[in-house]
Design a binder for these strands. Structure first.
Length: 747
DNA sequence: CTGACTAAGTTTTTT
DNA sequence: ACTTAGTCAG
């Protein structure tokens, strides 16, 4: 007991030792959330004699799951009480349940799991099948609607269209699900929704799992969606032994269905829940926390938290105004060099965070120029590389011949004379025969079968079919790695990649790395390998402990901490991202759209908050006055979030003034030449152009994304566009701006 | 059927 | 700027 509770504060202990009822741990950043959950598992196993078999712990990523498992093992490993403990992501746990309970579902045990790319391929077929206009109904947009519905547990036949556009979505959803079924495949959202359906439709199955999982613990609860929350409630059942840990202020995945209101729902659904708040921060010193609170306090619809730290005082947040992204990179590299040479920090103590992956480029250049090694976190994941996906498609098709997406992916890779036309003929023919294309492919092996294919095309397809048949024959006798070797050899895939370029070489290395990785599955069935690869985003990076500065997006910084943190590109249009502030710039939007815009900016604010709170000792916030984006050079204003940081918590560059003072407004107003309303004009003056009403008039205070606040001098409509002359004190000059780019500021 | 050209569209990311 | 999807001549 002493061991497990050692080093925990009173609230943390209360959480770890809480009784069997529902428990909600609401905790700030750096308060030891995950630690509490880890200790809770060890406590249950050791002190309460709960068999590990009865415990299910859900984490946000696979990596977090592995780390948690290791830590629990470290705490009570020798007692060997962890048999059967389930730690993993929702998706991994659901995938396994669906496989084990396949008899209760309409999919076979061998079902494939489709990732985003596969999903897009399926949805493209849907657009074709339904003759939808791909301009207005892109596969991507349809998919996001379907995914949102699934996340809310709305099945295709329950989807209620409320307007005409939704009717198309409903049909697309239906067709999409049909195609998945034909492929014997589920997408990520299905894993969750189908598991919920399995439990809802089979009381006996649910009861079995409720008996098994008597303790359900969920980490990062603010990032769960409705499906996940429903699942957790079903499992907890009458016992309601739910233990959820989260921080609504760190919810940054709403864009993919996470709903931080689950936290509120949990409290409402469990009125007797024990709610434990952890506010003490063990990570950062107070100045950093004050900066973080200044930013997050601007969000509405939240419970205010008072973050405090007993750490000794540390430096204030430094704001640096760079000229450009190159200067930004330069400043980062210089600062690191300086702090390292003083012996205060080692290279691995630094992290550089940014909103978008595209921003890493200039930083990488900077590091390379200075000959400083760095670590790039995330970016293109190993498993989303083309060459890896190709090889995986071969294995998946071998395992599940109904997988049309994999079939279409590699039927002509490397090129073997099977072109678009042949594939089309083949698919049409297969459909006419009531078979899947891969099934039809095997039919071609029989000479007597008639088909509309040319003899050349048929010969090419037969060659491919023979290979596939051979792989299917040996798949149970070979280890996964051996099967990969055979596929590579039979298809000549390696020489296909070897195009003499460096890129080709690195692709070959990647494929060989995949084969090396598959060695770990020696003795395990192919399906285990396939399933785990589908549910994992990236390979273990053994260089994780490399002593280098890390570059990452703010999203991938979640859960991490570093002594020194730089956040770059803290600018309007980047953080908050232009897409999230688009609604507030657009005039004449509906109330719903406006609310949507506010929600989007609040999520950006939480992202900024997550970034700031990663810092233990030093925090640098950078913005550039000039930055190249999509080719041309643009300038952004410093992010609104910077202005929310209290003066007492920051030093460095002074932020440019954003507003218009009363004195400036009056003096600029004196310059105004009113655009006279139409009623003031005589008939002769009333030309079609000038009679149009302007939205702005002299004296209005307006906001422009680039120049900040200004005062309208005059406005006129010409060529169908409202042109507004505005005086901007921020730049000390006058500009003519199209009205659409201006927003009225309430004064 | 393949390689070369052109147009379009650019968040965040884990599963 | 840069990738990538789609079109077209060889």
């Amino acid at each position: 007991m002493a061991d497990i509770l050692k080093g925990l504060n009173e609230q943390q202990r209360a959480a770890v030792t809480a009784g069997d009822g529902p428990v909600l741990v609401l905790a700030g950043p750096g308060s030891g959330k995950t630690r509490v959950l880890t200790h809770r598992i060890a406590y249950l196993a050791q002190e309460r004699n709960v068999r590990a078999w009865h415990i299910m712990a859900v984490t946000f990523t696979n990596k977090a799951a592995r780390e948690m498992e290791n830590r629990v093992l470290g705490m009570l490993g020798e007692s060997g009480k962890l048999d059967g403990l389930s730690i993993g992501t929702f998706h991994a746990i659901c995938a396994r349940i669906l496989r084990v309970e396949a008899d209760y579902t309409t999919f076979t045990r061998d079902y494939a799991i489709f990732d985003t790319e596969d999903q897009l391929a399926v949805m493209s077929h849907v657009v074709g099948d339904l003759n939808l206009d791909p301009k207005t109904n892109t596969p991507r947009s349809l998919l996001s609607k379907v995914s949102a519905a699934k996340n809310e547990l709305i099945a295709a036949r329950e989807y209620q269209p409320s307007e005409y556009r939704d009717e198309k979505i409903r049909r697309a959803y239906q067709r999409y699900d049909e195609l998945l079924r034909e492929n014997n495949a589920r997408d990520f959202d299905d894993l969750l929704m189908h598991t919920v359906q399995l439990f809802q439709q089979n009381a006996d199955v649910l009861e079995r799992y409720q008996r098994r999982y008597q303790y359900v613990l969920v980490d990062e609860f603010q990032d769960t969606n409705i499906a996940q929350y429903t699942l957790v409630r079903l499992l907890a059942g009458e016992r309601r032994c739910l233990f959820a840990v989260g921080d609504p202020d760190q919810s940054i995945y709403a864009f993919r269905g996470a709903d931080y209101r689950n936290v509120k729902r949990f409290a409402e659904d469990h009125p007797d829940a024990q709610v434990i708040m952890l506010e003490e921060n063990y990570r950062s010193h107070q100045a950093i926390l004050n900066a973080a609170m200044g930013v997050i306090d601007q969000n509405t619809d939240r419970t205010k938290k008072n973050l405090f730290s007993q750490r000794k005082k540390g430096p204030l947040a430094t704001i640096y105004e760079a000229y450009s992204e190159d200067d930004e990179a330069h400043y980062v590299v210089e600062t690191i060099t300086d702090l390292v040479s003083k012996g205060e920090y080692k290279p691995g103590d630094f992290a550089i965070m940014y909103r978008t992956n595209a921003q890493s480029r200039a930083l990488e250049d900077g590091f390379r120029r200075a000959n400083m090694p760095y670590r790039l976190v995330g970016a293109t994941s190993f498993y989303s590389r083309k060459e890896i996906k190709d090889v995986m498609a071969y294995l998946r098709l071998t395992h599940n011949p109904s997988d049309n997406v994999s079939f279409e992916r590699i039927v002509n890779v490397p090129t073997r004379g099977i072109g678009q036309k042949t594939i089309e003929t083949m698919i049409t023919w297969a459909r006419d025969q009531g078979m899947s294309p891969p099934q039809a492919l095997f039919m071609l092996l029989d000479d007597k079968i008639d088909s509309p294919l040319s003899s050349r095309a048929r010969a090419a397809l037969v060659g491919f079919a023979k290979m596939l048949q051979e792989w299917r024959r040996v798949r149970d006798d070979l280890m996964p790695a051996e099967l990969i070797s055979k596929v590579l050899k039979d298809t000549g895939y390696i020489s296909y990649l070897d195009d003499g370029t460096e890129q080709g070489q690195s692709r070959i290395e990647n494929v060989l790395e995949l084969r090396g990785y598959a060695e770990r599955y020696n003795g395990l069935p192919l399906v285990t390998f396939l399933e785990e690869i589908s549910l994992v985003s990236d390979v273990d990076t053994p260089e994780d402990d490399l002593n280098r500065p890390s570059l990452m997006t703010l999203h991938s910084a979640k859960g991490l901490e570093f002594p020194v943190v730089f956040i770059t590109g803290v600018e309007e249009n980047i953080l908050p991202h232009s897409r999230s502030i688009a609604p507030e710039r657009r005039p004449g939007i509906t109330e719903d759209e406006r609310q949507e815009g506010i929600r989007a900016v609040e999520e950006e604010r939480r992202l900024m908050y997550v970034g700031i709170t990663r810092a233990e000792q030093r925090l640098y916030l950078l913005y550039a006055t000039m930055r190249s984006l999509y080719g041309d050079s643009r300038s952004n204003l410093p992010s609104r979030f910077l202005y929310d940081i209290p003066d007492a918590a920051r030093n460095g560059s002074d932020l440019p003034r954003r507003g218009v003072t009363e004195g400036e407004r009056r003096s600029y107003q004196a310059m105004t030449t009113w655009a006279a309303p139409a009623s003031y004009l005589t008939r002769s003056e009333e030309t079609p152009k000038s009679s149009a009403k302007t939205r702005f008039r002299g004296g209005d205070v307006v906001f422009h994304a680039k120049y900040g606040e200004g005062v309208v001098i005059s406005a006129k409509v010409a060529g169908g566009l409202e042109q507004v002359d505005v005086m901007f004190p921020g730049i000390g000059g006058q500009k003519t701006i199209i009205a659409d780019f201006l927003k009225k500021v309430e004064s």
